[in-house]
């Protein structure tokens, strides 16, 4: 009886020590999960998730403060990727956060209307608008993430969101299954 107890205690002590050692030896450094989440987010920095940018949202997800379905620009594919990463069930996109658009958008300033107030420059999270006070502003299309944060501050509503223009550089060969159903040509709104 005593022997049995001793053996059990001994085993328990041994495995406990082993686990403790393993925990120290194989400790994962830092908190890479936030980085991993941040990698999957679209980096539009739009704040539609109610956090000021993608990184804070990633931190909030990592802490479990908020669900994975509050990122409209990422849409279902981002939700799926996050679900895979975090091993949770994918959820439908939170409608309160906004709607997902399949077509990537960029902002464009109607330059004849712009009064040069610089408000949009301050609003842009990626510094993609250039201009100076009382001078016309313009959007660097390549840098614009389509976050729409510049729209509300504009006092004269001179900023429009347009689909990213198709060119031979960003054109994607149509997936064969869709041939014959969807016309290959995509109308670009001027």
């Amino acid at each position: 009886m005593l022997m049995a107890i001793l053996v059990m205690v001994g085993l328990a002590a041994f495995f406990g020590a082993l686990l403790g050692y393993a925990a120290i030896k194989f400790k994962v450094e830092g908190d890479p999960i936030t980085d991993q989440i941040d990698q999957l987010l679209p980096q539009t920095q739009c704040g539609q998730c109610s956090y000021p940018g993608c990184r804070p949202y990633a931190e909030a997800i990592a802490k479990g403060e908020i669900g994975i379905n509050h990122c409209p620009p990422g849409g279902d594919s981002t939700i799926q990727a996050l679900a895979d990463l975090l091993d949770v069930e994918p959820l439908p996109l939170d409608e309160e956060a906004g709607e997902h658009s399949d077509v990537p958008l960029v902002a464009i300033i109607r330059e004849e209307t712009c009064i040069g107030c610089t408000l949009c420059i301050q609003a842009c999270p990626v510094d993609a608008i250039v201009g100076a006070a009382k001078l016309m502003h313009t959007v660097i299309a390549d840098e614009c993430t389509g976050c729409e944060l510049c729209l509300p501050p504009c006092p004269v509503d001179c900023i429009d969101m347009i689909p990213v223009p198709q060119s031979t550089d960003n054109w994607v060969w149509p997936e064969p299954a869709t041939l014959g159903k969807i016309p290959i040509k995509i109308e670009v709104k001027a």
């Binding site: 941040d38 980096q43 539009t44 940018g53 999270p125 993609a128 840098e143």
Partner: peptide, 15 residues
């Protein structure tokens, strides 16, 4: 583009 945006945003925040 997204990593550029991240960098630009980080710089924006830093700025």
């Amino acid at each position: 583009k997204s990593s550029q945006s991240r960098e630009r945003h980080e710089f924006h925040e830093f700025r």
